[in-house]
Amino acid sequence: MKQAKKLLEEVGIEGDRVEMYNMGASDAPLFAAAVNEMTERARTLGPNPLKKRG
């Protein structure tokens, strides 16, 4: 995951846009928390720079 973030950052895309979470299939609260975190990150970072030019 560290490497994937580095590869993205080399190109000019924030590494924070990608993340890996480990959770069990029955861990609904964990899943919801992860989704909320990623949503928050996306809001802070703004639109995907690739889509802006889309």
Binding site: L7, V11, G12, I13, L50, R53
Partner: peptide, 8 residues
């Protein structure tokens, strides 16, 4: 990476 950079 090259494709992403080109698009950016």
């Amino acid at each position: 990476q090259m494709r992403l950079a080109a698009k950016l």
